[in-house]
Design a protein around this nucleic acid. Structure first.
Lengths: 225, 225
DNA sequence: ATCCCTTTGTGAACCAATGCACAAAGTCGC
DNA sequence: GCGACTTTGTGCATTGGTTCACAAAGGGAT
């Protein structure tokens, strides 16, 4: 009934999707070191998860392993890349060229995964015209033209909080449906638009919470400080 | 026989902890706008979650609302801050002063939440001695001395991938147990050490996955997500 | 070819998180 | 002071995710 490497279940759990890039990274490292084949145990170790989870995750994509042997590194890289949509080239625009935007523009991790920074935009006339990471910074007025003209399908928001919603609305109006938001605001968007957010200070706050627990222990008196 | 603001259950779910900073941000915004009292419905809206979830989250901290009225903004800010450990001052060291480290050093969101960047460290003699965000960049050799001497309890790793594990080992050796890692590697750490990681390219890959689906992946009947 | 050894893929049990729906608790107008 | 109204806090059902543990599948040795 079922041919071997089959279309699988089209609904991949969100938690699994979030880990696939992790596996991919581990696999790339192995490929570089010339490892041809890897067991779920070893790959899981390299990705920092346990092996049962890894196997279940991969099983959602299909049956790409060989029992008694493991997974072929190159083949698995290809399958995961395809599933994540990394076999195509994605044009990304970065809006907001402050410290963070600059860092993102220079970040090597994008290019190496099929993402191409196609435009940098900013509202500040002071930075418009600068060249960053080989790209000319354009004025935010060009936003719509740039997105449409260069086939941008993912927008990264690295603007100040106050500007984020407005830019967000504009990019959605021209058809963008995937946004990565670094501004510390909750964006309101219509159904069908995906927003992922990264808030650097939130991560620190979570660490502080756990750190406090460790330091304070079971019955820590309320310390006024 | 329960006094009103009770010690609550000491085990707060991880998912709840991750959302508290979100609520806090929304509350700060409201406090600034002079709002004295807020309902779970409104606060949930501002934080981008539904109200049942918000109420359940807050109920883990204690009973800080008033039925029929809502939550007092200032009071709730204080309670959440205290729970997260933000009423104390946390000294943070940033290791690696590339584009990202620089962006982090300048990021306002840290300071405003009780985090103080106490040191910037780098291995590159080219940047050691520079002043960034008012701080002198010190040589990585000073790592142990700086951590011990300035009471650093949280370390942010913004080094190249290849250097991260080594720095990580060193900071753990001097007693640091909370690490925020931006390097694209899985750090191996002993029990009792918390590592949170942020990988910018992973977020983009997750977006690409969903974008591909929307765009009409390989053979897909529209399932509307 | 057959047996043994390794490792995958997955059913089933477990655990965590979400969302619903409502009783309990409080406020406010009269 | 009382009743109507609002909004919290939570028990319960549900959904989603993780882990266990093992049968099935393949490779390699003899």
């Amino acid at each position: 009934m079922k041919s071997p490497s089959q279309p699988r279940d089209r609904g991949i759990p969100e938690a699994t999707v979030a880990r696939l890039p992790l596996y991919l990274r581990a696999l790339h490292g192995m490929a570089e070191r010339g490892i041809a084949t890897v067991s779920s145990e070893d790959l899981a170790g390299a990705a920092g998860v346990n092996s049962a989870k890894l196997r279940k995750d991969l099983s959602h994509l299909g049956s790409y392993g060989t029992r008694g042997v493991g997974y072929e590194v190159e083949y698995l890289v290809y399958q995961i890349s395809r599933e994540l949509g990394l076999t195509q080239d994605w044009a990304v625009a970065i809006v907001g060229v402050g410290n963070l935007g600059r860092a993102l523009a220079n970040y090597g991790g994008f290019v190496s995964r099929g993402f191409r920074v196609a435009a940098l935009l900013d509202a500040d006339p002071e930075v418009v015209g600068d060249t960053i990471a080989g790209l000319n910074v354009e004025h935010i007025d060009e936003l719509e033209a740039v997105i449409a003209g260069r086939g941008v399908s993912i927008v990264v928001l690295a603007t100040p909080a106050a500007a984020a919603q407005k830019v967000c609305d504009r990019v959605i109006a021209v058809g963008v449906t995937s946004i990565l938001n670094f501004a510390p605001v909750v964006l309101s968007v219509p159904d069908g638009v995906d927003v992922r957010k990264v808030d650097l200070s939130i991560e620190l706050q979570i660490l502080a919470f756990h750190e406090q627990r460790k330091a304070g222990g079971p019955l820590m008196a309320v310390d006024g400080q």
